[in-house]
Write a protein that binds this DNA or RNA. Structure first.
Length: 934
DNA sequence: GTTCTCACG
DNA sequence: ACGTACGTGAGAACA
């Protein structure tokens, strides 16, 4: 058998161009050679591997085709041809000429029509010939027959895909290849702007074609159907017929089939050599011209057929999820009589203490002047120990007097035998700590109890009261007004009103506890998490927050000045480039300048609200096109650093302590992580050189101290390895290998020492992707490769790490069975959309099913470590203090005399916090600021 | 108050 | 057919 290879040049050029979108090949003269390079590579690979007997390259022409004439909107919506492609086309033509391959071009016809015609004529003329159509375009499926096949070139040295009639039918799930046209006429084709029938996609089209065989037969029998589908088929019947007309590849192009013209011949060395030199394709040149005869006419084996690709998240679940679980054991407090007492004066307080100290469990709530615990002054405290009754103690504004009144209450708060219940107890704990009172004994936080029951719901007291007690408590707004400038002060609230409010809060919190316990008792792990993890952690967090962090203010002031002048310079340049002044920080104005005034290529669609997208991703793609793009990125970076960090942080220094005190939120994230706010100290810059500088402002309390930072190495990936028990991955970690490198070696099928930086980079991204619940699309976006290539990499990953795939499937399966997934310690995340018929929702839930146990287990681990490290520092009465936690990192203000001792102990605790059956490692650094400590 | 953009793990 | 990696918080613009 002889082989004829026909190339669809434009389709291959587009494919190559976008495959290199993120890291284009640029020649020293600034020419983007990605498309030419990709095309050359493809053609060369085919020649060397397949040794074709006949070759031809088909091009489209700018002249209108019958499709344009019959349907004016044809390809109208296609984005304008990228400049880089326009420039590439003449080079591709030159290349084809130099290789002495015939160009197949005819005005009024597209490449697919030409290829179709030649293919059909070739097999008719020569019974000894097999035609391979080189194209990534699925429409060619309609032309396939026994001796006409589609040949999809593949990247990365992976197997190519050859599609005969059987494969095409399988791919589309149809009976014969003619139905490819029917499929396209129904579902349409966005690329070619074939409209299709509204509301009909691949799945619906498959069903319809399976039943009716063809578009015509379907349209003749719409009476069988019902609903919207019927309506659309009837209303858009004509559009469907037009679509079919457009989708059909014309095999009667008026050209002759001259076999001898297509015969493969050696390249024209004198033309090819200078061309490759000009394009700076040095290695390619060696590959082609190094050999005597690059195009060899020989017999060859049939190409291998690649296995069918796997749809990662294919699922047949169609059912809707059931109703949300709700709590029905309501009791209406409004009808319940209550007694709220005002307790004024030392004598009355002492009397109350008599009652309180007889209890094993007491609920309390503090009223203060500020939401910031470090600055808050006590206005009152309420207590409750039995339902329907509560006590409110007002405190004098004079702080000395307040302390005096508070002193006897130590008997309650510092009593080890009394359990203290409160809503968001960390706040009350911190406020009381300001007055020298430590809450001892067991603590119970209704907010955290509910967080462990339903992490994604709201956990404020009003919501809990409504959900569990069917009662809407007095709102704080009724007392002091809404948040903001107009908000009043707790101190100014009338005594009887604040008594009702405060006492009620304690009463309700007390009543919530048994309801929450009842739910938690059904989940013993959740109960353990509350008492053994979250509650002890609350004390640690309170201590960290109160400790605060020292900031180098003069340094930040200096940095602010520098940033200000730099912003001005960049801003002036942008105005100059734009030709007018405008608000650069306004995405709306910026979009208009960029895409309307300067007419730059918007690269992406608009946002939902009809605005141009001007995000980092878009602008970086544009920076080759226009200087303004990179200047705007500079402006954004500088502006962000200045406003969010450099200028904002000094404002938040506490007057009392001279340090900054963040709040670590313990009941916010869906996965079990902490979050940090006011200020957020978990997103201090580190990725860019300029941003990183800000970390120099985080300094030890004085010269006797240093900053010590300890972070887990690859913690989420290790957890993934432990969960999946994948031998290769466990092995890499236990041998202390560079996992990303090891992954690259496996996925790209090379020896460990042959992994280059690009392969490692890709493998690293894939590893992250796995943790997030990969999609080919997401991975392609992330590393700037084609979706096909991404899909291949993912497939290869799962071949190499089969148990990882198994783990992912298992997680999703578990979520479907139970409605939730859980971490090592049993922290749950409910995934109500896991059975949703909506692909989007379900896909989201499925990715969460994979990610939540991993991210959440890492959170469990660092929380255990924090508790143990804190206990150690306290027990040893060390001066070293924990001051921050950033998901996988702990930061300490470490006394120099203690460093050597503390460092090893911290490392040991972190590495052994949880035993997952895998080696855990940390990185520990020291320095005179946070940046140096890394 | 919502949207966009961008900082972190 | 759709939109697409997981989890956060903050500042500025705009409605």
């Amino acid at each position: 058998m002889k082989k004829l290879f026909l190339f669809d040049a434009m389709a291959l050029i587009y494919r190559a161009h976008f495959a290199f979108a993120k890291t284009p090949r640029i020649s020293s003269k600034g020419l983007n050679t990605s498309a030419v390079f990709g095309f050359a590579n493809t053609i060369l690979e085919v020649i060397q591997k397949e040794k074709p007997d006949y070759l031809g390259v088909a091009f489209d022409t700018p002249a209108p085709t019958f499709r344009h004439v019959d349907f004016p909107a044809y390809k109208a919506q296609r984005q304008e041809q990228p400049e880089d492609i326009t420039v590439a086309i003449p080079y591709v033509k030159k290349l084809v000429e130099a290789m002495d391959i015939p160009l197949l071009i005819l005005d009024g016809y597209e490449a697919d029509d030409i290829i179709g015609t030649i293919a059909k004529k070739a097999v008719q003329a020569n019974p000894e010939i097999v035609v391979y159509m080189m194209t990534p375009d699925k429409d060619y499926g309609q032309l396939v027959e026994e001796r006409i096949k589609m040949y999809k070139p593949a990247f990365m040295g992976k197997g190519v895909e050859v599609l005969g009639p059987k494969e095409v039918c399988e791919k589309w799930d149809i009976q014969n290849v003619d139905q490819v046209i029917d499929m396209l006429s129904l579902m349409g084709d966005a690329v070619d702007n074939i409209p299709g029938i509204p509301g009909v996609g691949e799945k619906t089209a498959q069903k319809l074609i399976a039943e009716y065989g063809s578009l015509e037969n379907l349209l003749a029998n719409t009476a069988d159907l019902k609903g919207k589908l019927k309506e659309n088929l009837e209303n858009y019947a004509e559009q469907g017929r037009m679509s079919k007309h457009l989708a059909r590849i014309l095999c009667e192009v008026p050209i002759d089939y001259q076999e001898e013209r297509l015969l493969a011949t050696p390249a024209k060395r004198d033309l090819l050599e200078p061309l490759l030199e000009e394009l700076e394709f040095r290695t390619l040149k060696k590959r082609i011209l190094g050999e005597e005869s690059p195009v060899v006419v020989t017999k060859s084996k049939a190409p291998k057929v690649a296995s069918n690709q796997i749809d990662l998240f294919a699922s047949s679940i169609e059912e809707e999820t059931g109703p949300e679980p709700s709590f029905t054991n309501h009791k209406n407090l409004q009808s319940t009589a209550h007694q709220y007492h005002l307790v004024q004066g030392l004598a009355a307080v002492k009397q109350l203490i008599q009652y309180l100290t007889r209890q094993t469990s007491v609920c309390f709530d503090t009223e203060t002047t500020s939401l910031l615990a470090v600055e808050a002054e006590l206005v009152g405290i309420s207590f409750a120990y039995r339902t329907g009754e509560a006590f409110y103690i007002p405190f004098p504004a004079d702080q000395t007097e307040a302390k005096e009144l508070l002193e006897p209450l130590k008997e309650v708060f510092e009593n080890e035998k009394i359990q203290k219940i409160a809503q968001n107890i960390k706040y009350d704990m911190s406020v009381l700590a300001n007055y020298g009172i430590e809450i001892k004994g067991e603590i119970y936080d209704t907010m955290l109890a509910h967080y462990l029951i339903e992490p994604e719901k709201r956990h404020n007291m009003d919501a809990l009261s409504l959900a569990y007690l069917n009662y809407e408590p007095l709102s704080i707004e009724e007392l002091i007004g809404k948040k903001g400038a107009k908000q009043g002060n707790m101190r100014d609230v009338e005594l009887n009103l604040i008594k009702e409010y405060a006492a009620e809060d304690a009463d309700i919190t007390l009543q919530l506890k048994p309801h929450l316990d009842k739910v938690l008792d059904k989940n013993p792990k959740g109960k353990t998490l509350l008492h053994e993890l979250e509650m002890p952690l609350t004390r640690v967090l309170s201590a960290i927050e109160r400790e605060g962090v020292n900031l180098d203010i003069p340094f930040l002031k200096e940095m602010s000045n520098t940033l200000e002048s730099d912003v001005k310079i960049v801003q002036e340049r942008i105005y100059e480039l734009a030709g007018k002044q405008f608000n650069i920080a306004s995405p709306k104005q910026l979009g208009e300048i960029l895409f309307e005034k300067l007419k730059l290529d918007p690269k992406a669609k608009k946002t939902k609200t009809g605005q141009y997208m001007t995000g980092e991703e878009i602008l970086s793609k544009m920076d080759a096109e226009h200087e303004i793009a990179s200047k705007i990125l500079d402006f954004r970076e500088l502006q962000k650093l200045k406003s969010t960090y450099v200028d904002a942080l000094p404002q938040l220094i506490c007057a009392k302590t001279g340090r900054i005190h963040t709040s670590f939120m313990q009941a916010v994230t869906a996965t079990g992580r902490l979050s940090s706010k006011d200020p957020n100290l978990q997103n201090i810059p580190i990725r860019t050189a300029r941003g990183r500088e800000i970390r120099k402002a985080f300094i030890p309390r004085n010269e006797d101290y240093q900053i010590l930072s300890a972070d887990y190495s690859q913690i989420e990936l290790r957890i993934m390895a432990a969960f999946s028990q994948d031998d290769s991955m466990l092995d890499a970690f236990n041998k202390g290998q560079d996992v990303h490198k090891a992954t690259a070696a496996k996925v790209f099928g090379v020896a460990l020492e042959d992994v280059d930086s690009d392969m490692r980079r890709k493998a690293k991204t894939v590893n992250f992707g796995i943790i997030y619940g990969v999609s080919a699309f997401g991975l392609a976006e992330q590393i700037g490769i084609s979706r096909t290539e991404a899909k291949e990499i993912i497939e290869q990953y799962f071949v190499q790490f089969p148990k990882v795939k198994q783990f992912m499937d298992q997680s999703i399966h578990q979520a479907r069975e139970n409605g939730y997934v859980e971490t090592v310690m049993g922290r749950r995340r409910y995934l109500r959309d896991i059975l949703s018929a909506n692909m989007n929702e379900r896909g989201f839930a499925e990715r969460n099913a994979i990610n939540a146990p991993i991210q959440g287990s890492a959170a469990d681990m660092i929380k255990v470590a924090m508790i143990q490290v804190h206990d150690f520092l306290v027990k040893e009465k060390l001066k070293t203090k924990m001051i921050l936690t950033v998901h996988d990192e702990l930061v300490f203000d470490a006394h120099k005399d203690e460093i050597s001792f503390v460092k090893d102990k911290i490392d040991h605790i972190m590495c052994n916090a949880l035993d997952l059956g895998i080696k855990i490692e940390t990185g520990i650094g020291l320095g005179n600021n946070w940046l140096e400590a890394h």
